[in-house]
Nucleic acid binder design. Structure first.
Lengths: 210, 210
DNA sequence: ATAATATCGATAACACAGTATCGATATAGC
DNA sequence: GCTATATCGATACTGTGTTATCGATATTAT
């Protein structure tokens, strides 16, 4: 089992971004308190998060070394070795993801995109191929990650194809639940869930305003 | 305080989608067990989720009424009364969100989009205006939700503008931490966090495969 | 009618994430 | 050098989400 909690994992990229800001400002050390202040977390939580991944401890009165934290978190998140991925579904959202140049910093490289009806052969510097070549491509280059940005109605079919081709992780942007075997990793980016949380928070706030 | 947990809240849209599928197939009742099976949840959890929002209880041996659940969840999530939102940043991601026609089903309507340099006046049926008109627009129409899809470096500035104009909830798609007062709701859609979780799961799986 | 069974709700047990407390210690100031 | 203090790590506590258990009850079958 994984020893680090999902919650900690999700906070790490935020810390990393902030630490890089500090690095730019030539700040060498930072206390858990200062970081907690920025993110509105509890300082103990910040220390625990760091303790679960950092090789090095913080020092009393000084705090943590910004540089060390940056390398520890980057290393832990696997930002130093790139995972290759394919993207399926070059619609509006597919375009948006292909246009995002930041994935490489997160250890992800989209090496090809596929669509049922490719209108262009190149989108933001990424090859776009007919989806019929997808399976071969995935097998041939041993791709492990598939990004699904197809419409809801074809998502399950695409998912099945990807898995059959050998994909081990699915990043699903399609608004649907995918049925997958339990030896496949999945992460859903669900706008409806996200919006549900935001709406609820908004209601709370409006209730308090009154 | 809000009585429903964030976790439950995030599961509700998934249930709703599934229930609507069942409705299409003219299935009238469904057991917590059947739903749990689909989502790989624990049946007790499904019942608890329903108990926390449903006006009506399930019946022994029969389960829950699909129709009733659909109306209860829709109502609870506020899908019956539309919230108006503005979107700021009509780049690739902005385009993608503007193209998505599903928000209305989730109780959200993007009534206008803004950009520093609007290339078109209309994107997927949405008016696009210069960002200099944003503040007035938000005040005039009393908009409560702002969607931020600008690049990281301008996100905080846009956020501040929105809040000053009267926005009460921010849906942030920009990869940065936003500093906001605590009477403003925020929900971050952070690709890096999402990817961190997926990568971790992938590592686990690859470890087990060996 | 009666018995069997699927399913529920309630309550209790468990697991785990978050928070509080406190002694230890590195640095800074006197 | 000695004292004060910021900050840490460890441990203990709390709170919340998840899971297990179990008695109650509609429905179905005999």
């Amino acid at each position: 089992m994984s020893s680090i909690s999902k919650e900690t994992l999700q906070r790490l990229p935020g810390y990393l971004r902030h630490l890089k800001e500090l690095q730019k400002q030539n700040i060498e050390n930072v206390s858990s308190n200062a970081i907690a202040e920025v993110f509105q977390y509890n300082p103990v939580q910040v220390r625990k998060d760091f303790a679960s991944i950092a090789g090095e401890a913080g020092k009393p009165k000084t705090g943590f070394s910004v540089n060390n934290l940056i390398s520890d978190i980057s290393e832990f998140l696997g930002y130093n070795n790139i995972n290759e991925a394919v993207l399926v579904g070059v619609g509006n959202l597919g375009h948006a993801l292909l246009s995002y140049s930041g994935f490489k910093n997160y250890g992800l490289e989209i090496v090809a995109a596929f669509d049922v009806n490719p209108e262009k052969t190149l989108v933001h510097g990424h090859r776009v191929l007919d989806v019929k070549y997808m399976s071969d491509f995935v097998k041939r280059f041993n791709i492990l990650i598939g990004i699904i940005t197809v419409p809801q109605e074809s998502a399950q079919a695409v998912c099945d194809m990807l898995i059959t081709a050998g994909i081990k992780a699915i990043w699903n942007f399609s608004p649907t639940h995918l049925d997958i075997p339990n030896n496949i990793a999945i992460m859903n980016v669900d706008m409806a869930s996200s919006l549900a949380v935001l709406s609820q928070r908004l209601s709370e706030i409006m209730k308090n305003e009154k």
